[in-house]
């Protein structure tokens, strides 16, 4: 499928009448390179909502039943990513390994704090990894906002969980579709390669819908606290 589309685009270059004789070799190379870049981006497929919901269930099984099978699956998927993320953020391999084990153990220990109406499992693991990164790499405290009351007895509504996970999937798809340069800039920001004054927050990504969902979840928690 991808390959066919690539051939099509390359064929366009060759027969495009508006380009005529003026097509220089470098221009063709550049266009071909851009095409293969696009193909590479398309190989980054965001996880579909069904997988995301499965992982949400895995976290619940760890919380409720100390289910090591569920943990092993989450570990297999996320631990290499966490380690890669930490290495890209400047940790050496041995610190990254130690820190990854620590992040995954935290997932087990704090499974009861995960709220699937506010975050995907990937989001939650990202925040744990980021906080450990600040502790270990920058040797700073990471002040966190005041907790809102949350506990297993206050299960979020399944419909809210589903919507949030679906919207995160849309965000993932939009990220995967970004032009390479823009996507790279966002990755650099999250790897800590940009200072806070270099970060451009205009990502062009659909963050607004997720933000509204999270806001609703926060309102429910505030209400439950009263």
């Amino acid at each position: 499928m991808h390959l066919q589309r690539n051939h099509g685009m390359l064929a366009d270059v060759e027969i495009d009448p508006t380009l005529g004789d003026a097509v220089s070799i470098p221009a063709m190379v550049a266009k071909a390179a851009a095409t293969s870049m696009k193909a590479r981006q398309r190989q980054v497929t965001p996880k579909n909502a069904a997988t995301r919901l499965l992982w949400v269930e895995h976290v619940a099984r760890i919380r409720d039943h100390k289910d090591t099978q569920a943990f092993a699956e989450l570990f297999g998927h996320f631990a290499p990513r966490v380690k890669g993320f930490l290495i890209n953020s400047g940790a050496d391999a041995s610190l990254a390994e130690e820190c990854t084990q620590d992040v995954m153990a935290t997932l087990w220990n704090k499974a009861h704090q995960f709220d699937a109406s506010r975050a995907s499992v990937a989001t939650w693991i990202f925040t744990i990894a980021r906080n450990r990164k600040i502790d270990l790499l920058r040797r700073q405290r990471r002040p966190e906002p005041e907790d809102l009351t949350w506990g297993p007895e206050e299960e979020p509504d399944q419909a809210d969980v589903l919507t949030l996970q679906q919207e995160t999937e849309l965000l993932g798809a939009a990220l995967a579709d970004l032009p390479h340069a823009q996507r790279e800039l966002i990755e650099k920001a999250y790897f800590g390669d940009l200072t806070h004054s270099e970060i451009a927050a205009e990502t062009g990504l659909p963050l607004g819908t997720i933000k509204s969902r999270i806001r609703l979840a926060l309102d429910r928690l505030r209400h439950a606290m009263k």
């Binding site: 965001p46 990513r81 966490v82 995907s120 990937a122 965000l171 990220l175 963050l207």
Partner: peptide, 13 residues
């Protein structure tokens, strides 16, 4: 937290 969601997708992808 919506920016955290973006961080999660960077990790995922």
């Amino acid at each position: 937290e919506s920016f955290d969601a973006l961080g999660g997708e960077v990790l995922e992808q």
